[in-house]
Amino acid sequence: MRHVISLLLENESGALSRVSGLFSARGYNIESLTVAATEDPSLSRMTIVSIGSDDIIEQITKQLNKLVEVVKVVDLSEAGHIERELMLVKLRATGKDREELKRLADIFRGRIVDVTDSTYVVEMTGDPAKLDAFVEAVDSALILETVRTGVAGIGRGDRILKV
C-alpha cells in the first residue's frame, strides 16, 4: 500500500540525514521525499511517500517518532488529504508539434514558462497520477527532460499538523 507520511521536525542540520538514514538502514522504501522550512523557521515539514504493508508502515511511523528531532508524525493517507507535486518538462517543440503541445499543456492546466524556437518548458502541478498522465500523453520522443519535486501533502479540513 502507498502511504503519504507527513512530519514536523526540528530545522537543524543533520535532521534530514537521520530520516533518510533510517529508511536505508531498515530497508524501508522511499518513493519520494520533500522537505522545506515552515512558517516557523525552527521547524521543517517533510512529506515522505512510501510503499509497504501495514506492519511496515506502522514500524516506519514508530521509528520516525523515535528520532529525537522529529516533533510529530502523521500518516496522511489514513484519511482525506491533498497531494500535490510540481513538474517541469522540457519538450522539443518544432513545426506542428508546437500547437499540439500547447493545446495538451492547456488541457492539463500546465503553463508554458520558457519558450525558444525549438523548445517549451511546461510547468505543471497536480497529484502524481495527473503528472504521469501528461507524460504518457506526450510523444516520448519529444520529452527532452523532466524534473519532479515529489509529493507535498496536507490533510483535509480539520486535520492539522502543528506543534
Binding site: 506492519d55 506502522e58 514500524q59 514508530k62 521509528q63 517518532n65 523515535k66
Partner: peptide
C-alpha cells in the same frame, strides 16, 4: 518503553 519494540 519503546513503542517501536512492540509488534515489531
Amino acid at each position: 518503553i519503546d513503542p517501536s519494540s512492540i509488534s515489531k
